[in-house]
């Protein structure tokens, strides 16, 4: 079964009397365990597509299925439930809660799922260890480097054991070394856990990690092919 299925999806934005078509009939499918990148120039629709797949937004027309369930017309709370249970997010701007430390940030999605305290603690510590931040658990975001913050975000995205992780320009605000480290962690976790990763980028150093590259231009998929798996290790 496809983790993600996008069928003839459009997304229009209307500001005043001007309507902009961000997506114009996108079709694609992503299998479980894939490591896929969406590429394309600014304004090509990468972020819009990620937002629609992530149930943060709704398409103007067409259908999006997550694990076989049509999420295109769900209400706000139903979409929140899908995000909480099936999707993890990694954003360009690190997106941690500034008043919570690394441990609490990773713990937050588990609290929303009402996981028991002992199991929660074990899971959070395991994930922080996975991203190499076991010793930084009690540090707040402003006490962490950009790379460390993004690694906390990765741990948080994986906290609820989602089937799909969406990352929007995850290395855009990182230097080369940190960007590489983040991508390697994502690739390793993809292989280790079988979680599907879909990330948007226009950074060539990141694209090389993808197994499949989907290219968008002007709101349409113009290429959907293999990436460069040999580069990943």
């Amino acid at each position: 079964m496809h983790v993600v299925q996008v069928e003839n999806v459009t997304r229009d934005y209307t500001i005043g009397e001007v309507t902009t078509q961000a997506l114009r009939g996108v079709d694609l499918a992503i299998e479980r365990g894939e490591f896929v990148t969406l590429v394309g120039p600014s304004g090509s629709g990468k972020t819009t597509l990620l937002q629609l797949i992530g149930c943060l937004d709704q398409p103007t027309s067409g259908r999006i299925l997550i694990n076989g369930r049509d999420v295109s017309r769900l209400n706000r709370n139903q979409r929140a439930d899908i995000r909480r249970n099936e999707i993890g997010f990694i954003f360009q701007f690190f997106a941690l809660i500034p008043t919570l430390n690394a441990y609490e940030n990773v713990e937050m999605p588990l609290l929303l799922r009402a996981m028991g305290a002992a199991e929660r603690r074990e899971r959070v510590l395991h994930l922080l260890a996975e991203v190499g931040l076991a010793d930084r658990a009690d540090h707040r975001p402003d006490q962490l480097s950009g790379g460390e913050q993004q690694r906390v975000a990765i741990a948080r995205a994986l906290a609820t054991d989602p089937t799909l992780v969406l990352a929007d320009e995850p290395t855009a605000n990182l230097d080369t070394a940190n960007g590489q480290q983040v991508m390697e962690i994502m690739a390793r976790l993809n292989e280790a856990t079988g979680v599907t990763f879909v990330f948007a980028t226009h950074d060539p150093r990141v694209i090389k990690y993808a197994r499949r590259v989907i290219t968008l231009r002007d709101g349409m998929v113009v290429a959907n092919g293999q990436g460069a798996p040999t580069e990943r290790s």
Partner: peptide, 14 residues
């Protein structure tokens, strides 16, 4: 933005 993050990780409106 923080509200957006909370919503993104699945926090319901209520």
């Amino acid at each position: 933005r923080e509200i957006g993050i909370l919503a993104a990780i699945g926090m319901r409106e209520r």
